[in-house]
Simulated scan of single mutants.
Amino acid sequence: MDRLIYTSMTGANHTLNQQATVAQNLANAATTGYRAENNAFRAVPIFGDGLPTRAFVVDSTIHADFTPGALQTTGRDLDVAIKGSGWIAVQLDSGEEAYTRNGNLQVSPNGLLLTHNGLKVKGDTGTITIPPETRITIGVDGTVSSVPINPQPNTVALVG
């Protein structure tokens, strides 16, 4: 009897984890760039004494749903959306590289291109720095360019 309780408890434990995943998805339903998590279960047979029909329940796949959400027009030049399977590379405070799909960007007073929560956006050669008195544009391919505001508006510089 004691082993039967542990066997049945595996299903209850994974169901509780699935509820937590659903709650997380609901809490972030309006978060820009959030990707929902999905759970899938599978039965694993128990070998040993007892009937061969006994099975544990385990998570077979926990994965994110990368289906693109609806695009929203914000009117900000620094709000970008990512088409397909791309990511924005950022630098964590520890110096490690991480990735996000949240395209709500900003420029710091020092000229660094940052995410909405202050992480530095990285390009091919390191963090992206925006020259002073320029307007930046982000191309469809992810190229970040700067255009001077005053003297020569036709001069475009690739910054990341």
Rank of each mutant, 00 (worst) to 15 (best):
N13E: 14
D124H: 04
N110L: 12
V121A: 06
N104Q: 14
L112G: 08
V58F: 11
L51K: 15
S146A: 15
D2A: 14
R35M: 08
R76F: 00
H116F: 05
A40W: 04
L158P: 00
P132C: 08
G118P: 05
A98H: 14
S94H: 07
K83F: 07
P151E: 05
A55R: 15
V90Q: 08
S94I: 10
Q91F: 13
N38F: 06
P151D: 07
P52T: 11
G50Y: 03
V22E: 01
S85Y: 00
K83Y: 07
L16D: 08
L119D: 15
T100F: 07
E97W: 03
E96H: 05
N25V: 00
A98G: 15
R54Y: 13
L114D: 02
I136Y: 02
R42S: 11
S94K: 12
T32H: 03
D79M: 02
N17T: 03
F56L: 15
I128A: 03
I46T: 01
L26Y: 02
A20M: 10
S8Q: 08
D59H: 11
V57C: 09
Q19D: 05
T15K: 11
G111Y: 04
I128N: 03
G75T: 11
S145D: 12
H63R: 14
D93H: 11
R101G: 01
A89H: 13
M9R: 14
V159E: 10
Q152N: 13
A64C: 01
T129G: 05
T21C: 02
A30L: 12
Q91L: 14
P153H: 10
